[in-house]
């Protein structure tokens, strides 16, 4: 039973993609950089190419970290919903398989946060 209720009960999820007026949500976690307390919630255009997503969304989101300027996105490793992921930079986010409310993990080898403290 999907809910303990006195009778038949159905519910509509509150966060369907249709409720975001053309945008979709992507969550982004930059690993080993806990200065940012939690992953970010980013509203994005599903058609935005991954390269533009890096430039216009990811870079501004992480800019306040001292490591941000040293990130080399050509060697960065990604995971999409906990699976290994190699984005096609020219393709849109949705075409890359990034669904509404997907979680992207960004791993930047060699950058381990403030003084290597994972912060």
């Amino acid at each position: 039973m999907p809910v303990t209720a006195i009778g038949t009960y159905t519910a509509q999820p509150l966060d369907r993609q249709a409720n975001f007026h053309g945008a979709q949500l992507v969550y982004l976690c930059w690993e080993n950089h806990l200065l940012f307390c939690a992953p970010f919630t980013l509203p994005v255009d599903p058609a935005q190419p991954f390269a533009a997503f890096i430039e216009q969304v990811v870079k501004p989101a992480i800019a306040l970290h001292p490591d941000a300027a040293r990130v080399d996105f050509t060697v960065a490793r990604w995971r999409l919903d906990e699976q290994p992921f190699s984005p096609d930079l020219a393709c849109g986010l949705a075409a890359n398989g990034i669904a509404h409310k997907s979680l992207l993990h960004l791993h930047t080898p060699g950058l381990e946060g403030l003084g290597g403290s994972h912060n």
Partner: peptide
């Protein structure tokens, strides 16, 4: 009880909607 929590009013999502 997924039917209960799919309706959660998550403030961040509400702002973005």
């Amino acid at each position: 009880e997924p039917e209960k929590y799919v309706q959660a009013w998550l403030p961040v999502h509400q702002i973005l909607q």
